[in-house]
Every structure is written in C-alpha cells, then in structure tokens.
Amino acid sequence: MNDPYKVLGVSRSASDAEVKKAYRELAKKYHPDKYSDSPLADLASEKMKEVNEAYDQIINERKNGAGSYSSPGASYSSGYSSGQSGYSDPYSGASVYQQIRRMINEGNFGQAEQALSEIPSDGRNAEWYYLMGVVYYRKGFLEDAYNYFQTACRMDSSNVEYQTMFSRIQQQRSGVQNGYNSSSSNQCNACDVCDICACMLCTDCFCNSCR
C-alpha cells in the first residue's frame, strides 16, 4: 500500500488537526455525490477508499504510538465511504424503464439511447426524460441533458431523484464548482467587514464623549 501521508499530501510531522483538514478536503473532492451519474464514478470511489484507509491508518498509528494523543476523528470515515448509488428502480411495473436503467448501469449507453428512442412520443413520461438526460449527461452532451432533466422535473415535481439531479446541474451552471460566477462580481454594495468595523469605530467615538 502507498504511504498514507503521501496519499493525504501532508508531511509526517503534520499535526492531527492538519491531517484532519487534509482528509476533509480530499473527502470533499472525491465525494461520491459529485460523481454520481459520471462514468468516472468507480474511479472516484476507489480514490475515496484510498483516502479513507490512509486516514484511518495514520490515526491508528498515532493512537497506538502516543496513547491519548489522537482525536476521535476515525468515526468520520464511515460517513463518506458510501459507494455508487446505482439505479434501483423505485417504480413497480415499469419494466421497460427497468431494463433501460440496467443498460445504463452496465455502461451500454448506445443501447439505452436506442431503446429510449423506440418508445413512442405519446408514452414518454417524466422518467423517460430523466433517463434520456442521464444518457446525454454521460455522453457529454450537457445542454441536451440539462433540457431533459428540466422537462422531467416539470412533469413530476415531487420526485426526489429528478430534483436532486437538476439542482446539482443548476449549481454547476452557476459556476460555484468551477468557472466564472458572474453574479458574485456585483457585491461591492454589500455590507462587508470593513463597514462593520467603521460602524463600531464611529459608535465608539460617542461612548468616549459621554464620559
């Protein structure tokens, strides 16, 4: 196995807090939620496992080496290690869609797209649009995927699966994860720390004059 310190990107002399911070950052980076529906999901979960193991190893080593030295951080690892969500079908009776979900799970996107396009247009429900969105999302056709997810959400606004996916995409589009967030540049009018300080100073002047 690799050197656990190298995996976390910290030096051997790093404090427990530093190790924990590095671990948290990496856990955020490889979080399975970010990679759901991406073809790289399995690689991301491998990385996540590696990071978890490295963290546990360091914590255990330190606990055994220096008695009460370590912090109770090991319990952390269990929360993040959930694997791929997979497509368990929550509906009963929708056998065609079940088959298509299986195809997507196995990575046969061409086949899944074919099967979806064979469904006549009057039989297309919210799930059809959602699955079509997943196929396009994996293919890298992000705009088409966005439109399909949007339609799916409009047709069935109570479905958690569709809503989660759509809100994740909207977050990506806003530029929070990467890219340029055009709305954040207009914040010069907002109240910032300097304003607060200035206010405090002014109020402080009055306090002195009262004495």
């Binding site: 991301a44 890298g140 990506q172 994860q177 990467n178 967030n181 055009s182």
Partner: peptide
C-alpha cells in the same frame, strides 16, 4: 453572454471532476 457563461460553467465543472482524479 450570461447564457454562454452558464454553458461554460457546466463544462468546466465536469472538466474539473475528471481532472481531480
């Protein structure tokens, strides 16, 4: 341009997911 930026943001987010690995 704001619309173009949205499209680019989404692409950049996906790009970053791959790059991080």
């Amino acid at each position: 341009m704001r619309y173009c930026n949205e499209v680019l943001n989404m692409t950049a987010a996906q790009l970053m997911l791959a790059y991080d690995l």
